[in-house]
Design a protein around this nucleic acid. Structure first.
Length: 402
DNA sequence: ACTCCACAGGAATAACCGGGCG
DNA sequence: CGCCCGGTTATTCCTGTGGAGT
Protein backbone atom coordinates (compact mmCIF):
# COMPACT_ATOMS: atom_id res chain seq x y z
CA UNK A 1 0.00 0.00 0.00
CA UNK A 2 2.47 2.57 1.15
CA UNK A 3 4.94 1.35 -1.46
CA UNK A 4 2.32 2.10 -4.12
CA UNK A 5 2.10 5.63 -2.92
CA UNK A 6 5.84 5.80 -2.80
CA UNK A 7 5.87 4.68 -6.38
CA UNK A 8 3.60 7.49 -7.46
CA UNK A 9 5.89 10.04 -5.88
CA UNK A 10 8.99 8.51 -7.38
CA UNK A 11 7.43 8.49 -10.81
CA UNK A 12 6.29 12.06 -10.43
CA UNK A 13 9.74 13.10 -9.38
CA UNK A 14 11.42 11.36 -12.30
CA UNK A 15 8.86 12.82 -14.70
CA UNK A 16 9.53 16.29 -13.46
CA UNK A 17 12.30 16.75 -15.95
CA UNK A 18 9.80 16.59 -18.80
CA UNK A 19 8.08 19.90 -18.42
CA UNK A 20 9.87 23.02 -17.35
CA UNK A 21 7.01 25.47 -17.65
CA UNK A 22 3.59 24.02 -17.13
CA UNK A 23 1.98 27.41 -17.20
CA UNK A 24 2.74 27.73 -20.91
CA UNK A 25 0.54 24.71 -21.61
CA UNK A 26 -2.61 26.08 -20.02
CA UNK A 27 -5.42 27.80 -21.86
CA UNK A 28 -4.95 31.03 -19.97
CA UNK A 29 -1.36 31.50 -20.98
CA UNK A 30 -0.82 34.44 -23.28
CA UNK A 31 2.49 34.28 -25.11
CA UNK A 32 4.67 37.33 -25.56
CA UNK A 33 4.08 37.39 -29.27
CA UNK A 34 1.08 35.93 -31.00
CA UNK A 35 2.16 34.16 -34.17
CA UNK A 36 0.04 34.81 -37.28
CA UNK A 37 -2.10 37.36 -35.55
CA UNK A 38 -0.10 40.51 -36.24
CA UNK A 39 -2.74 42.05 -38.40
CA UNK A 40 -5.49 41.49 -35.90
CA UNK A 41 -3.59 42.76 -32.90
CA UNK A 42 -2.48 45.80 -34.86
CA UNK A 43 -6.03 46.60 -35.89
CA UNK A 44 -7.15 46.17 -32.33
CA UNK A 45 -4.42 48.43 -31.03
CA UNK A 46 -5.25 50.99 -33.71
CA UNK A 47 -8.84 51.25 -32.57
CA UNK A 48 -7.92 51.50 -28.91
CA UNK A 49 -5.18 54.03 -29.52
CA UNK A 50 -7.73 56.84 -29.76
CA UNK A 51 -7.83 56.63 -26.01
CA UNK A 52 -4.51 58.50 -25.93
CA UNK A 53 -6.06 61.25 -27.97
CA UNK A 54 -8.53 61.69 -25.17
CA UNK A 55 -11.49 60.27 -27.03
CA UNK A 56 -13.63 57.21 -26.67
CA UNK A 57 -12.51 54.34 -28.89
CA UNK A 58 -15.15 52.57 -30.94
CA UNK A 59 -16.85 49.53 -29.56
CA UNK A 60 -15.57 46.36 -31.06
CA UNK A 61 -16.67 42.85 -31.84
CA UNK A 62 -14.28 39.98 -32.32
CA UNK A 63 -15.55 36.89 -34.13
CA UNK A 64 -14.04 33.53 -34.79
CA UNK A 65 -14.26 29.85 -34.07
CA UNK A 66 -12.90 28.53 -30.78
CA UNK A 67 -9.13 28.45 -30.49
CA UNK A 68 -8.42 31.06 -33.13
CA UNK A 69 -6.64 33.41 -30.78
CA UNK A 70 -9.41 35.92 -30.11
CA UNK A 71 -9.07 35.92 -26.36
CA UNK A 72 -5.29 35.85 -26.46
CA UNK A 73 -5.18 38.74 -28.92
CA UNK A 74 -7.59 40.82 -26.86
CA UNK A 75 -5.74 40.05 -23.66
CA UNK A 76 -2.37 40.88 -25.02
CA UNK A 77 -3.43 44.19 -26.58
CA UNK A 78 -5.46 45.26 -23.61
CA UNK A 79 -2.65 44.40 -21.21
CA UNK A 80 -0.21 46.46 -23.18
CA UNK A 81 -2.73 49.29 -23.32
CA UNK A 82 -2.97 49.28 -19.56
CA UNK A 83 0.79 49.26 -19.22
CA UNK A 84 1.25 52.12 -21.68
CA UNK A 85 -1.48 54.08 -19.99
CA UNK A 86 0.19 53.89 -16.62
CA UNK A 87 3.50 54.91 -18.20
CA UNK A 88 1.88 57.94 -19.78
CA UNK A 89 -0.18 58.53 -16.70
CA UNK A 90 -3.34 58.37 -18.73
CA UNK A 91 -6.32 57.26 -16.78
CA UNK A 92 -7.57 53.99 -18.23
CA UNK A 93 -9.31 51.13 -16.48
CA UNK A 94 -9.27 47.77 -18.16
CA UNK A 95 -11.66 44.96 -17.28
CA UNK A 96 -11.71 41.46 -18.61
CA UNK A 97 -14.85 39.45 -17.92
CA UNK A 98 -15.67 35.98 -19.15
CA UNK A 99 -19.42 35.76 -19.45
CA UNK A 100 -19.48 32.00 -19.50
CA UNK A 101 -17.43 31.60 -16.35
CA UNK A 102 -19.64 34.20 -14.74
CA UNK A 103 -22.44 31.73 -15.38
CA UNK A 104 -23.89 33.36 -18.47
CA UNK A 105 -26.30 35.34 -16.39
CA UNK A 106 -26.52 39.05 -16.83
CA UNK A 107 -26.67 39.69 -13.13
CA UNK A 108 -23.49 37.80 -12.39
CA UNK A 109 -21.69 39.72 -15.11
CA UNK A 110 -22.78 43.00 -13.55
CA UNK A 111 -21.75 41.73 -10.17
CA UNK A 112 -18.37 40.68 -11.52
CA UNK A 113 -17.85 44.11 -13.06
CA UNK A 114 -18.79 45.79 -9.81
CA UNK A 115 -16.46 43.55 -7.89
CA UNK A 116 -13.52 44.21 -10.22
CA UNK A 117 -14.12 47.94 -10.22
CA UNK A 118 -14.00 47.91 -6.46
CA UNK A 119 -17.47 49.31 -5.99
CA UNK A 120 -17.99 47.01 -3.07
CA UNK A 121 -15.23 48.71 -1.18
CA UNK A 122 -17.34 51.86 -1.20
CA UNK A 123 -19.42 52.49 1.82
CA UNK A 124 -22.69 52.89 -0.02
CA UNK A 125 -24.45 51.67 -3.12
CA UNK A 126 -22.73 48.36 -3.25
CA UNK A 127 -23.69 45.66 -5.70
CA UNK A 128 -24.26 42.42 -3.90
CA UNK A 129 -24.15 38.85 -5.01
CA UNK A 130 -27.91 38.85 -5.23
CA UNK A 131 -30.87 40.79 -4.00
CA UNK A 132 -30.89 43.77 -6.34
CA UNK A 133 -32.96 44.18 -9.45
CA UNK A 134 -31.06 44.21 -12.74
CA UNK A 135 -31.88 47.83 -13.40
CA UNK A 136 -30.69 48.99 -10.01
CA UNK A 137 -27.46 47.03 -10.25
CA UNK A 138 -26.70 48.46 -13.69
CA UNK A 139 -27.47 51.96 -12.49
CA UNK A 140 -25.13 51.63 -9.56
CA UNK A 141 -22.30 50.46 -11.78
CA UNK A 142 -22.87 53.21 -14.34
CA UNK A 143 -23.13 55.87 -11.65
CA UNK A 144 -19.91 54.70 -10.15
CA UNK A 145 -18.13 54.95 -13.49
CA UNK A 146 -19.50 58.43 -14.02
CA UNK A 147 -18.67 59.61 -10.52
CA UNK A 148 -15.09 58.41 -10.80
CA UNK A 149 -14.87 59.60 -14.39
CA UNK A 150 -13.44 56.26 -15.40
CA UNK A 151 -12.25 55.58 -18.90
CA UNK A 152 -13.25 51.98 -19.02
CA UNK A 153 -12.30 49.37 -21.56
CA UNK A 154 -14.59 46.46 -20.89
CA UNK A 155 -13.82 43.17 -22.58
CA UNK A 156 -16.57 40.58 -22.42
CA UNK A 157 -15.41 37.17 -23.52
CA UNK A 158 -17.91 34.58 -24.75
CA UNK A 159 -20.44 37.34 -25.04
CA UNK A 160 -22.77 35.09 -27.02
CA UNK A 161 -23.49 32.92 -24.01
CA UNK A 162 -24.56 36.05 -22.19
CA UNK A 163 -26.99 37.10 -24.89
CA UNK A 164 -28.29 33.58 -25.38
CA UNK A 165 -29.32 33.25 -21.82
CA UNK A 166 -30.14 36.75 -20.68
CA UNK A 167 -30.89 38.76 -23.79
CA UNK A 168 -29.12 41.92 -24.83
CA UNK A 169 -30.54 44.29 -22.24
CA UNK A 170 -27.32 44.92 -20.38
CA UNK A 171 -25.45 45.44 -23.62
CA UNK A 172 -28.08 47.96 -24.56
CA UNK A 173 -27.67 49.76 -21.26
CA UNK A 174 -23.91 49.76 -21.49
CA UNK A 175 -23.66 50.94 -25.05
CA UNK A 176 -26.27 53.60 -24.44
CA UNK A 177 -24.60 54.75 -21.25
CA UNK A 178 -22.04 56.78 -23.17
CA UNK A 179 -24.63 59.27 -24.36
CA UNK A 180 -26.01 59.59 -20.89
CA UNK A 181 -22.80 59.98 -18.98
CA UNK A 182 -20.99 63.19 -18.34
CA UNK A 183 -17.37 62.34 -17.74
CA UNK A 184 -15.99 58.90 -18.20
CA UNK A 185 -16.81 56.47 -20.98
CA UNK A 186 -17.11 52.79 -21.72
CA UNK A 187 -15.60 50.99 -24.65
CA UNK A 188 -17.04 47.54 -25.06
CA UNK A 189 -15.09 44.77 -26.68
CA UNK A 190 -17.19 41.69 -27.24
CA UNK A 191 -15.68 38.34 -28.09
CA UNK A 192 -17.89 35.75 -29.69
CA UNK A 193 -17.40 32.19 -30.86
CA UNK A 194 -20.53 32.25 -32.88
CA UNK A 195 -20.44 33.89 -36.27
CA UNK A 196 -24.19 34.36 -36.26
CA UNK A 197 -24.10 36.14 -32.94
CA UNK A 198 -24.87 39.51 -34.47
CA UNK A 199 -28.21 38.33 -35.76
CA UNK A 200 -29.47 37.71 -32.28
CA UNK A 201 -28.97 41.30 -31.22
CA UNK A 202 -31.47 44.07 -31.15
CA UNK A 203 -30.64 46.37 -34.11
CA UNK A 204 -29.87 49.30 -31.81
CA UNK A 205 -27.38 47.24 -29.83
CA UNK A 206 -25.95 45.75 -32.98
CA UNK A 207 -25.10 49.06 -34.56
CA UNK A 208 -23.49 50.53 -31.49
CA UNK A 209 -21.70 47.39 -30.34
CA UNK A 210 -20.13 46.57 -33.66
CA UNK A 211 -18.85 49.96 -34.65
CA UNK A 212 -15.81 47.97 -35.64
CA UNK A 213 -15.48 44.26 -36.09
CA UNK A 214 -12.70 41.83 -36.56
CA UNK A 215 -12.92 38.29 -37.85
CA UNK A 216 -10.40 35.68 -36.78
CA UNK A 217 -9.89 32.92 -39.30
CA UNK A 218 -8.89 29.43 -38.20
CA UNK A 219 -5.22 28.56 -38.20
CA UNK A 220 -3.93 26.28 -40.93
CA UNK A 221 -2.27 23.03 -39.93
CA UNK A 222 1.05 24.54 -40.82
CA UNK A 223 0.47 27.55 -38.60
CA UNK A 224 -0.69 25.31 -35.79
CA UNK A 225 2.52 23.36 -36.12
CA UNK A 226 4.63 26.44 -35.74
CA UNK A 227 2.59 27.69 -32.81
CA UNK A 228 2.97 24.35 -31.09
CA UNK A 229 6.66 24.17 -31.75
CA UNK A 230 7.10 27.55 -30.18
CA UNK A 231 4.98 26.58 -27.22
CA UNK A 232 6.76 23.27 -26.83
CA UNK A 233 10.11 25.01 -26.78
CA UNK A 234 8.84 27.19 -23.95
CA UNK A 235 7.31 24.47 -21.85
CA UNK A 236 9.29 21.29 -22.44
CA UNK A 237 12.85 20.56 -21.61
CA UNK A 238 15.29 19.97 -24.41
CA UNK A 239 14.50 16.71 -26.17
CA UNK A 240 11.54 15.88 -23.97
CA UNK A 241 9.16 15.80 -26.88
CA UNK A 242 9.57 14.43 -30.37
CA UNK A 243 8.87 16.60 -33.35
CA UNK A 244 6.52 13.96 -34.69
CA UNK A 245 4.42 14.26 -31.55
CA UNK A 246 4.11 18.00 -31.99
CA UNK A 247 3.18 17.60 -35.63
CA UNK A 248 0.56 15.04 -34.78
CA UNK A 249 -1.06 17.40 -32.28
CA UNK A 250 -1.23 20.04 -34.98
CA UNK A 251 -2.67 17.59 -37.48
CA UNK A 252 -5.38 16.36 -35.11
CA UNK A 253 -6.43 19.85 -34.13
CA UNK A 254 -6.31 21.01 -37.72
CA UNK A 255 -8.64 18.24 -38.79
CA UNK A 256 -11.54 20.06 -37.24
CA UNK A 257 -11.08 23.76 -37.82
CA UNK A 258 -7.64 24.84 -36.69
CA UNK A 259 -8.35 25.01 -32.99
CA UNK A 260 -5.16 26.04 -31.21
CA UNK A 261 -6.70 25.49 -27.81
CA UNK A 262 -7.40 21.88 -28.61
CA UNK A 263 -3.89 21.45 -29.97
CA UNK A 264 -2.37 22.75 -26.76
CA UNK A 265 -4.69 20.64 -24.63
CA UNK A 266 -3.54 17.58 -26.53
CA UNK A 267 0.04 18.49 -25.86
CA UNK A 268 -0.52 19.02 -22.17
CA UNK A 269 -2.44 15.81 -21.59
CA UNK A 270 0.11 13.88 -23.63
CA UNK A 271 2.81 15.22 -21.34
CA UNK A 272 0.83 14.24 -18.28
CA UNK A 273 0.35 10.73 -19.59
CA UNK A 274 4.03 10.33 -20.35
CA UNK A 275 4.90 11.62 -16.91
CA UNK A 276 2.55 9.20 -15.27
CA UNK A 277 4.25 6.37 -17.06
CA UNK A 278 7.59 7.70 -15.97
CA UNK A 279 8.77 8.04 -19.54
CA UNK A 280 11.16 10.84 -20.34
CA UNK A 281 10.10 11.60 -23.86
CA UNK A 282 6.65 12.40 -25.22
CA UNK A 283 5.99 10.68 -28.51
CA UNK A 284 3.14 10.11 -30.93
CA UNK A 285 1.64 7.32 -28.91
CA UNK A 286 1.05 9.66 -25.99
CA UNK A 287 -0.62 12.14 -28.26
CA UNK A 288 -2.97 9.51 -29.57
CA UNK A 289 -3.76 8.35 -26.04
CA UNK A 290 -4.26 11.95 -25.11
CA UNK A 291 -6.83 12.39 -27.87
CA UNK A 292 -8.65 9.30 -26.63
CA UNK A 293 -8.54 10.50 -23.12
CA UNK A 294 -9.91 13.96 -23.88
CA UNK A 295 -12.72 12.48 -25.94
CA UNK A 296 -13.62 10.02 -23.24
CA UNK A 297 -13.35 12.28 -20.25
CA UNK A 298 -15.96 14.94 -20.89
CA UNK A 299 -18.98 12.64 -21.28
CA UNK A 300 -17.78 10.46 -18.46
CA UNK A 301 -17.65 13.31 -15.98
CA UNK A 302 -20.92 14.76 -17.23
CA UNK A 303 -22.58 11.40 -16.81
CA UNK A 304 -21.22 10.74 -13.38
CA UNK A 305 -22.49 14.04 -12.03
CA UNK A 306 -25.79 13.99 -13.87
CA UNK A 307 -29.05 14.14 -11.92
CA UNK A 308 -30.86 10.89 -11.29
CA UNK A 309 -33.47 11.38 -13.98
CA UNK A 310 -30.86 12.02 -16.64
CA UNK A 311 -29.29 8.72 -15.71
CA UNK A 312 -32.63 6.96 -15.90
CA UNK A 313 -33.19 8.43 -19.34
CA UNK A 314 -29.82 7.19 -20.56
CA UNK A 315 -30.52 3.71 -19.27
CA UNK A 316 -33.90 3.78 -20.96
CA UNK A 317 -32.26 4.82 -24.22
CA UNK A 318 -29.79 1.96 -23.95
CA UNK A 319 -32.50 -0.57 -23.29
CA UNK A 320 -34.67 0.69 -26.13
CA UNK A 321 -31.84 0.12 -28.65
CA UNK A 322 -32.43 2.72 -31.33
CA UNK A 323 -35.88 3.39 -30.01
CA UNK A 324 -37.97 6.42 -30.73
CA UNK A 325 -39.05 8.97 -28.16
CA UNK A 326 -42.27 7.22 -27.26
CA UNK A 327 -40.59 3.89 -26.74
CA UNK A 328 -37.85 5.40 -24.61
CA UNK A 329 -40.44 7.21 -22.56
CA UNK A 330 -42.35 4.00 -21.86
CA UNK A 331 -39.18 2.29 -20.65
CA UNK A 332 -38.28 5.35 -18.64
CA UNK A 333 -41.68 5.21 -16.96
CA UNK A 334 -41.17 1.58 -16.01
CA UNK A 335 -37.74 2.42 -14.61
CA UNK A 336 -39.27 5.16 -12.52
CA UNK A 337 -41.78 2.70 -11.16
CA UNK A 338 -39.02 0.22 -10.28
CA UNK A 339 -36.96 2.83 -8.49
CA UNK A 340 -40.02 4.46 -6.95
CA UNK A 341 -39.37 7.84 -8.51
CA UNK A 342 -41.95 10.30 -9.66
CA UNK A 343 -41.62 10.37 -13.45
CA UNK A 344 -41.06 13.57 -15.40
CA UNK A 345 -43.24 14.49 -18.34
CA UNK A 346 -42.38 13.47 -21.86
CA UNK A 347 -41.77 17.08 -22.78
CA UNK A 348 -39.11 17.35 -20.12
CA UNK A 349 -37.56 14.09 -21.21
CA UNK A 350 -37.10 15.33 -24.76
CA UNK A 351 -35.35 18.34 -23.29
CA UNK A 352 -33.07 16.06 -21.33
CA UNK A 353 -32.35 14.03 -24.45
CA UNK A 354 -31.42 17.25 -26.22
CA UNK A 355 -29.06 18.14 -23.40
CA UNK A 356 -27.45 14.72 -23.68
CA UNK A 357 -27.16 15.25 -27.41
CA UNK A 358 -25.35 18.52 -26.81
CA UNK A 359 -22.91 16.73 -24.55
CA UNK A 360 -22.25 14.21 -27.27
CA UNK A 361 -23.51 11.33 -25.18
CA UNK A 362 -26.37 10.47 -27.49
CA UNK A 363 -27.26 11.41 -31.02
CA UNK A 364 -30.70 11.93 -32.49
CA UNK A 365 -32.08 11.54 -35.99
CA UNK A 366 -35.50 12.73 -36.96
CA UNK A 367 -37.36 9.96 -38.73
CA UNK A 368 -40.66 10.10 -40.53
CA UNK A 369 -42.74 7.01 -40.46
CA UNK A 370 -45.53 8.59 -42.41
CA UNK A 371 -48.76 7.23 -41.16
CA UNK A 372 -47.01 6.22 -37.97
CA UNK A 373 -45.92 9.67 -37.13
CA UNK A 374 -42.69 11.51 -36.80
CA UNK A 375 -40.20 11.04 -34.05
CA UNK A 376 -36.57 10.94 -33.12
CA UNK A 377 -34.41 7.89 -33.28
CA UNK A 378 -32.00 8.05 -30.37
CA UNK A 379 -28.62 6.35 -30.34
CA UNK A 380 -25.99 6.19 -27.63
CA UNK A 381 -22.68 7.57 -28.86
CA UNK A 382 -20.27 6.44 -26.20
CA UNK A 383 -19.17 2.92 -25.27
CA UNK A 384 -21.40 1.02 -22.88
CA UNK A 385 -18.47 0.31 -20.62
CA UNK A 386 -17.95 4.04 -20.10
CA UNK A 387 -21.55 4.42 -19.03
CA UNK A 388 -21.37 1.44 -16.71
CA UNK A 389 -18.22 2.85 -15.19
CA UNK A 390 -19.79 6.26 -14.71
CA UNK A 391 -22.95 4.89 -13.12
CA UNK A 392 -21.48 2.13 -11.03
CA UNK A 393 -21.81 4.17 -7.85
CA UNK A 394 -25.58 4.32 -8.21
CA UNK A 395 -26.41 0.96 -6.75
CA UNK A 396 -30.13 1.13 -7.40
CA UNK A 397 -29.50 1.94 -11.05
CA UNK A 398 -27.10 -0.83 -11.90
CA UNK A 399 -29.80 -3.34 -11.07
CA UNK A 400 -31.82 -2.00 -13.99
CA UNK A 401 -29.27 -3.02 -16.60
CA UNK A 402 -29.33 -6.60 -17.81
C1' DA B 1 -54.88 15.12 -52.71
C1' DC B 2 -55.87 14.65 -48.31
C1' DT B 3 -55.49 12.80 -43.69
C1' DC B 4 -53.63 12.08 -39.56
C1' DC B 5 -49.98 9.85 -36.67
C1' DA B 6 -46.51 10.73 -33.07
C1' DC B 7 -44.14 13.27 -31.93
C1' DA B 8 -40.81 18.11 -32.06
C1' DG B 9 -40.05 21.93 -29.88
C1' DG B 10 -41.61 27.08 -28.67
C1' DA B 11 -43.97 29.95 -25.03
C1' DA B 12 -45.86 30.83 -20.81
C1' DT B 13 -46.12 29.68 -16.34
C1' DA B 14 -45.47 27.32 -11.96
C1' DA B 15 -42.66 25.28 -8.21
C1' DC B 16 -38.75 25.41 -5.75
C1' DC B 17 -34.16 26.98 -4.04
C1' DG B 18 -30.51 29.81 -2.03
C1' DG B 19 -29.16 34.09 -0.27
C1' DG B 20 -29.43 39.06 0.99
C1' DC B 21 -32.45 42.53 3.10
C1' DG B 22 -35.04 45.06 6.62
C1' DC C 1 -38.30 36.01 10.75
C1' DG C 2 -40.78 36.63 6.29
C1' DC C 3 -39.99 38.76 1.98
C1' DC C 4 -37.97 39.73 -2.37
C1' DC C 5 -35.09 38.47 -6.35
C1' DG C 6 -33.10 35.88 -9.67
C1' DG C 7 -31.92 31.10 -11.19
C1' DT C 8 -33.14 26.49 -12.41
C1' DT C 9 -36.12 22.78 -13.25
C1' DA C 10 -40.39 21.03 -14.64
C1' DT C 11 -45.26 21.31 -16.28
C1' DT C 12 -48.92 22.77 -19.25
C1' DC C 13 -50.52 24.05 -23.44
C1' DC C 14 -49.67 24.67 -27.78
C1' DT C 15 -48.74 24.88 -32.96
C1' DG C 16 -46.14 22.62 -36.66
C1' DT C 17 -44.87 18.89 -39.81
C1' DG C 18 -43.08 14.83 -43.50
C1' DG C 19 -44.85 11.30 -45.56
C1' DA C 20 -47.37 6.28 -45.55
C1' DG C 21 -51.77 5.07 -46.11
C1' DT C 22 -56.10 5.78 -48.12
Amino acid sequence: MSSDIDNIFTKAASGRSLVKNRQALTIDYVPERLPFRDEETKALAQVLSTIFKGARPSNLLLFGKPGTGKTAAARSVVDRLAKKASELETDVTVLFINAKIAGGSAYKVIFEIAEELGINKEREKQVHFTGLSMGEATDRVLNFIQRKKLNLVLVIDEIDSLVDRSGDDILYNFTRANQRMKGGFITLIGISNSLTFKDKLDPRVRSSLSEEELVFNPYTVDQLRQILQERAKLSFNEGAISEAAVNLCAAIAGREHGDARKAIDLLRVAAELAEREGITKVDEKHVRDSEDRIERDAPFVALKNAPAHHKLVILAIIKSTNGTTGKVYDIYLSFCKQTEQKPLTQRRMTQIINELDLLGIVSTDIVNQGRYGRSQKIRVMIPLTTIEEALKDDIDLTSLID
